[in-house]
């Protein structure tokens, strides 16, 4: 759900890059927040809560609330709402806690 035309804003977007969400290739713009790219691709569920397994999505979008923790390039518990998107990023829904590798 990208905004094509806006009465006030002109969006300067980075170059188009490919990234992977749970293995599925998607496109986004370099430098935008990972969650924005996911949202633009219709991905609303970023993880499931630890005990009740409730689906969780973006909540604060400015790196405060920890609702957007995902696995990024193998690294667990990454705040994706303040993480700039890069070419080839592998983003995964993190189920459960982080792992010690």
């Amino acid at each position: 759900m990208r905004i094509d035309k806006h009465p006030v804003l002109h969006f300067e977007k980075g170059r188009k890059v490919q990234f992977y969400f749970d293995g599925r290739p998607m496109t986004g713009h370099e430098g935008e927040a990972v969650t924005a790219a996911l949202h633009a691709n219709g991905v609303m569920v970023l993880s499931h809560s630890l005990k009740r397994r409730h689906p969780r999505g973006l909540f604060c979008a400015i790196g405060k609330c920890a609702s957007c923790m995902m696995r990024v390039d193998g690294q667990d518990n990454v705040r994706t709402c303040i993480l700039p998107l890069r070419e080839g990023m592998r983003i995964e829904t993190q189920e459960g806690k982080g792992r010690l590798k």
Binding site: R2, I3, L9, A36, A40, C60, A61, I62
Partner: peptide
């Protein structure tokens, strides 16, 4: 504010 960030900073409709 999060909705605002999505739509006005990144151009993505919440």
């Amino acid at each position: 504010g999060a909705a605002q960030t999505l739509m006005n900073v990144y151009g993505v409709l919440p």
